[in-house]
Design a protein around this nucleic acid. Structure first.
Lengths: 139, 139
DNA sequence: ACAAAATGTTAGGTTTGCCTTACATTATAA
DNA sequence: TTATAATGTAAGGCAAACCTAACATTTTGT
């Protein structure tokens, strides 16, 4: 059983984790709507995630996330959050566009880039002068 | 015939365009080596690219790129170049890591993010003081 | 409580992209 | 120039993701 997650499975896991945090439960149809896929596709993805021990679920059972699954989800969500922040706060893009790009890039960005980006964002928070100038320059 | 390129086909097209610019010719095996895939996979990809009128080629014929293909390739390469520059010059990452990340992100980033990133890089070139401080801060 | 609606699963397909193996063609070098 | 090496293609397979349609189960509303 291969533990490496495809972009697709990462998306499923991310949605599951976020949904559970918000509502304490998640159904296949919620995931289907969130990801714009069919219920059947969700069923298949859940099987694959369960195979990898990232979620627990059985026929018609409630979906829960395992410790391992939560760890994997947290890593993805961390990437997402940072990227979205970068696009919105540094580049000054809209919420929606920032989120969409974060959603795609989170699956392919390396740890080193992530870390540097993190430092970059932090440095800008400590030294806001430059960013102010950049945002003025763009107007 | 669908004109939208998958990440995979974008990679093939990019390699073809770059190779043609450098050497004025490109063979299936060059592409195979560059992308770490089999010659057979390249054969298939070339068929798909030709179907979409992005390249010209026939059985055992030389591969050339169409105007449309060159336009598509240029768009991808532009993204690649800018992203790589950002990772290397702004975030201060190594050449190799910058290239690898650019290679993946170029397929998913939106036009707006690209444009903003471009402005951001340009602004930094005009105002190098901030970046100097950031790079010092990271040491 | 039970029919209707909602949700979940299965079966059977499709497409993309990759592979290996075997064969076809072209290039090369003795 | 011709055998060998290099390269290109075709055939047949596989896996990931997606789909629709049909069926199973659960939930809901009266």
């Amino acid at each position: 059983m291969n533990k490496v997650l495809t972009s697709g499975l990462e998306d499923y896991l991310e949605v599951i984790s976020n949904y559970l945090k918000k509502y304490n439960k998640v159904r296949a149809i919620d995931i289907a709507k969130e990801l714009n896929v069919s219920r059947a596709s969700v069923s298949e993805a859940l099987k694959r995630l369960a195979d990898k021990n990232l979620i627990n679920y059985g026929r018609y059972g409630a979906i829960s996330i395992t410790g391992e699954g939560e760890k994997a989800a947290a890593a993805i969500i961390e990437k997402h959050t940072l990227l979205q922040k970068f696009f919105k706060d540094i580049l000054g893009l809209e919420e929606q566009e920032s989120a969409e790009n974060a959603c795609k890039i989170e699956h392919v960005i390396s740890e080193n880039v992530l870390e540097r980006l993190n430092q970059f964002v932090k440095f800008n928070e400590k030294n806001p002068e430059f960013l102010k100038n950049f945002h003025n320059y763009m107007k």
